[in-house]
């Protein structure tokens, strides 16, 4: 089963580059990524550009609406993701817990939909 771990945090809660907290967080991400590689659970993962770069797309009655900004206007923004291959939700949660941003933000774990065709 594939699981997507979505990493959300409030922008002002993210450590600033150059501070010791930022170094600690980056080291945490590196350690987590290495563990994922070692355990062979990682299929992909990226950090995203800031939320200002987001565009949301919606099609209603055949008409495309583009919106400047992320889907939901919440304080916590999507900042990055990992795609894991795990047996169960418990395993996916185990790996998601290693994401440093989970300590001040939120990590959402969603199973990936698979379609079965003949």
């Amino acid at each position: 089963m594939k699981y997507l771990a979505l990493i959300y945090a409030e922008d002002k809660a993210n450590p600033h580059p150059g501070t010791p907290e930022f170094g600690k967080m980056m080291a945490g991400y590196q350690a987590a990524s290495e563990k994922y590689q070692e355990d062979g659970v990682i299929l992909g993962g990226e950090a995203l550009q800031p939320v200002e770069t987001a565009t949301s797309i919606r099609i209603r009655n055949g008409k495309t609406e583009l919106m400047d900004g992320p889907f939901a206007e919440t304080k916590e923004q999507l900042g990055g993701f990992y795609l894991f291959e795990c047996e169960t939700l418990d395993d996916a949660i185990k790996y998601a817990k290693m994401i440093p941003t989970a300590e001040y933000g939120t990590v959402e774990v969603r199973p990936i939909q698979t379609y079965e065709f003949d």
Partner: peptide
């Protein structure tokens, strides 16, 4: 079913 919450007796730190 879909998120595969396991049907097991948990062990370890959890």
């Amino acid at each position: 079913s879909k998120a595969r919450i396991p049907f097991v007796i948990p062990d370890g730190p959890d």
